[in-house]
Every structure is written in C-alpha cells, then in structure tokens.
C-alpha cells in the first residue's frame, strides 16, 4: 500500500464523514478526533455511573413496591449505560481502568446535573422527566454522530432512556394530581432542576471553542444552543399542561421565531460545578470510591475463580 501523507489521509477522513459514512475502530483518524471522543465518551460514561447516585438514594424509600422496582431498573440501566460507554471509549485506545481511576481521583469531569441534592421523592420524578428528556434530545443527536461504536451505543441507550422519561413523568403526574402538599413538592423540584437541566447541554455556542470542528467531524451534529432550545420547546408545554410553572417569568413563546424564549442559566455556576465545586461533588465521589472499595472482594473472587478454572 502506498504511503499517504497526513493531508491526504485527513482529506479522505473528512470526505468519508461528509458523505455520512461512519468511522470505525482501526480507521485512520486525526489525533484531535480521537482525543476529543475519548474525553467526551469518557465524561458521558462517568455521568451515567455517577448518575446512579442521586436517585439510588431513594430506592429504600420509594413509595410502594412498584415504584421501588421501577427505580431499581432505572438505576441498573444507568450502570449498564456506563459500561456500554466505557467499552465504546476503549475502542479508541483508552482502558476502562484508566478512566475509572480518573473518575475516582477527581481528575475526570462528568455532567453538572448529578452534583445537586435530591431531598424529596419528587426529585426522582423530575430527574426522570426533565433531566432524561434533555439527555435523550442530546443523545438522539449523538446517535447521528460519525464514530460507529459511540453512535451504536447511543441508539441502545436512547431506547432505554425513553422508559426513564415515562416513569419520571408518571411519578410527577401522580404528585400533580395529588394533595396541595404533593403539588407543592412537584413544583419545588421543577424549580430546583430547571436551571441545572438547562446547563446540561453545555456552555453557550459563543463560549464553546471547539464547536465548529466538532460539527465538521460530526462528533456533534447540533450545537449546544440548538439542543437546549429543542429541550425548552419540548418541555415547557408539558410542564404547563400539568398545571406546574416554569420558574422563569420571561419564559414565553415567541411567535416570530416559533421558539420559547428563556433566561440563560448562570454559566459561572456551570463552570464551578463541572470543575468539582458543586453542592454534592464531594459526596458523589466519596460514594463512588466506597462502592469501588466495597466491590473489591467480588472482583478478587471472580479473578480467583477464573484462575482456578483455567488451571483445572
């Protein structure tokens, strides 16, 4: 095979992407593409793993056996999604163990949204409804991305996340149809999750440096602002249909653009929370470390069993 120059390879890579073709492990790819995806898929995987914690706390206290089973299934899904994503990142040459170490040491970042507390049962419903709707809108976009293993993982995950949204919505409807205290509880949760959920789609386009390149290489297929707007347009009518309020007096439908206008979240808060200084960052990492240490005997037992079977 004749040796191509870097520019030739890059041109071939970009034309493949422009044609809507997927990039597969083993294909030549620019190092920036590889590193960008490793970072992004790793952060996504960590978010799923840490994402078990805010709701997992409610498993022992879920109101009724059915809600408990639903929540268990949901949290198990998050663990599964984390593992799927670690595998997708590994196809780019980074080991799961390395990523795990980076998460536990606090070096890796993950979604801002899991660093807020879940003081009431309504938080479980509102996370499933608002946070997972925002996640599905983002992940549907990522499923159109150029890297084959990530896009495939996204398809499977979106399918399962649609159950997460349904169960969250169902739990919120139960509260919205309930006593004044239950309605107030639902409203309070919507108030607390609104801005963190808006932040999930990432910094605004004008502050996000790599957007143009990420779009050209189809690492993303829509910008952060576009994804955020899609979420707002989708969720505001739903919130109001339940007789709940969007905690933003300026959130209004704009006839001219066909979109809802809304107040931008505090981007400084997003930066702080993602960099480790949110209300629950320390607790989340401590819980992850403890789970990892508590699981050590299981890993050791499995390794020992595999060794013995191998000898026999």
């Amino acid at each position: 095979m004749s040796e191509q120059s870097h520019d030739q390879k890059l041109a071939e890579f970009e034309s493949r992407i422009a044609a809507g073709d997927k990039i597969e492990p083993g294909d030549w790819m620019p190092d920036e593409y590889r590193q960008n995806l490793i970072r992004m898929i790793g952060q996504h995987a960590h978010s799923e793993i840490v994402g078990q914690l805010p709701e997992g706390k409610w498993i022992p206290y879920a109101p009724g056996f059915r809600r408990k089973l639903i929540l268990l299934a949901k949290v198990q899904d998050e663990a599964g999604h984390g593992q799927l994503l670690y595998r997708a990142a590994e196809t780019l040459g980074k080991s799961r163990e390395d990523m795990m170490d980076e998460l536990l040491s606090g070096k890796a970042k993950y979604s801002n949204v899991f660093n807020y507390p879940t003081p009431t049962w309504a938080d479980v419903g509102v996370i499933g409804w608002l946070v997972d709707t925002a996640a599905v809108i983002n992940q549907t976009m990522l499923a159109q991305g150029s890297y084959g293993p990530y896009a495939r993982a996204m398809k499977r995950i979106c399918y399962e996340e649609s159950f997460h949204i349904k169960q969250g919505y169902d739990a919120v409807v139960a509260l919205a149809k309930g006593t004044p205290a239950q309605r107030a509880m639902a409203q309070d949760a919507v108030n607390r999750w609104w801005y963190p959920t808006l932040m999930m789609s990432g910094p605004p386009d004008k502050m996000s440096e790599h957007t143009a390149r990420a779009m050209r290489w189809r690492i993303k297929t829509k910008t952060n602002d576009k994804v955020r707007q899609e979420f707002v347009d989708h969720i505001v009518p739903q919130i109001r249909a339940l007789g709940l309020n969007v905690p933003d007096p300026d959130c209004k439908f704009d006839e001219k653009s066909g979109h809802y206008r809304f107040t931008a979240p505090d981007w400084d808060e997003l930066r702080r929370v993602v960099n480790g200084d949110g209300p629950m960052n320390k607790e989340r990492l401590a819980a992850r470390r403890k789970a990892h240490e508590d699981g050590l005997w299981v890993r050791e037992a499995l390794a020992e069993k595999a060794k013995r079977n191998h000898v026999a």
Binding site: Q76, L84, R87, R96, R156, L302, K305, A306
Partner: peptide
C-alpha cells in the same frame, strides 16, 4: 457489543445483564 469478564462463563452473565 462487548463486555469485560474474567472468564467465558462470567461473560455470559455480564452479557445477559447488559
């Protein structure tokens, strides 16, 4: 897809769960 496992038997279990 794929899973991490210490041996084939566990791989089946992990694959079922995943």
């Amino acid at each position: 897809g794929s899973v991490h496992a210490p041996d084939p038997e566990m791989a089946l279990q992990m694959a079922r769960d995943q």
